[in-house]
């Protein structure tokens, strides 16, 4: 059964594209057939983060408008053979996407892939609404910071009202992915605690990704961190999150400044989805 998963946040710069690439790659590395769909029409970047920017010929808008067939627009990853990218258009206007057209493309993707990962644009406008419209699962990417948490709350409200599943009364799985977590500042009490964010947003935790130079390095060279540096803490967080998405039960550990005995003992257990 194919699953459509939107990676969304409301706020920009929290790590949607990085997380889409890393989660998608981790799922593909686990043998799943995955396509990453960039919904950020006009400001695409998933191609760059995936290192496929030189190979983009056709895009989502071409397929929606019938200028290209879906197989012509799909770019196969050179490192993981079950991983594909459907890029966003760079030059056309945002009205190029229609709900009917996106629905058609998603239905076609469902026939070929286990996971359709939709990388949402920032904001709450049409692009973000179309990215979440057909989702079965939502990953809400949040930073431990007040404006990000507020925007995530807004997006959760939209997931509960504007998606097809919400309108037809079906359950939409929602998960919180906490990114750019700074263990040192959390210890000093300068950063919101994981518990506080979970209490406010009230959706289950999918994972915590620590702020890490490895993520920047991976973006620089055009590779998801799970492929570029699989042993890094960030890659392991994403790989564990992907395993949870596949239904495995993997304990969530809060990244610690020094991984002492206490933090190992008090690792957080994943909330049931």
């Amino acid at each position: 059964m194919s699953k459509v998963m939107v990676v969304t946040s409301g706020k920009g710069g929290v790590g949607k594209t990085t997380s889409s690439a890393s989660l998608g790659a981790a799922l593909a590395q686990a043998g799943q057939n995955v396509v990453l769909v960039d919904f950020d029409v006009g400001l695409r970047n998933l191609d760059l983060v995936m290192g496929a920017e030189r190979r983009v010929v056709f895009d989502l808008v071409n397929v929606v408008q019938g200028d290209a067939k879906l197989p012509q627009a799909l770019i196969r990853d050179k490192r993981v053979e079950t991983l594909y990218l459907l890029p966003a258009s760079q030059t056309r206007d945002k009205d190029a996407l229609t709900e009917e057209g996106v629905g058609r493309v998603i239905a076609e993707l469902r026939e070929r892939f286990d996971w359709i990962v939709c990388d949402s644009p920032a904001g709450i406008e049409k692009g973000a609404q179309l990215a979440m419209r057909f989702a079965d699962i939502a990953v809400v990417v949040t930073n431990p910071e007040v404006s990000s948490v507020r925007d995530s709350d807004r997006i959760i409200g939209m997931l509960d009202s504007k998606t097809l599943r919400a309108e037809t009364g079906e359950r939409l799985e929602k998960h919180l992915l906490l990114t750019r977590y700074d263990a040192a500042r959390a210890t000093k009490g300068e950063m919101m605690k994981v518990e506080d964010i979970l209490e406010i947003l009230a959706i289950p935790l999918l994972g915590i990704v620590a702020e890490s130079p490895d993520v920047l390095t991976a973006s620089n060279v055009g590779s998801p961190v799970t492929l570029h540096n699989p042993a890094s803490a960030a890659a392991r967080s994403y790989t564990d999150a992907a395993r949870r998405l596949m239904g495995e039960s993997v304990a969530i550990n809060t990244p610690a400044e020094k991984r002492g005995l206490m933090s190992r003992l008090f690792g957080r257990k994943a909330a049931a989805a």
Partner: peptide, 10 residues
Amino acid sequence: QDKVVVKLDR
């Protein structure tokens, strides 16, 4: 049209 494969390398 379905059997046309287009590849680009910049």
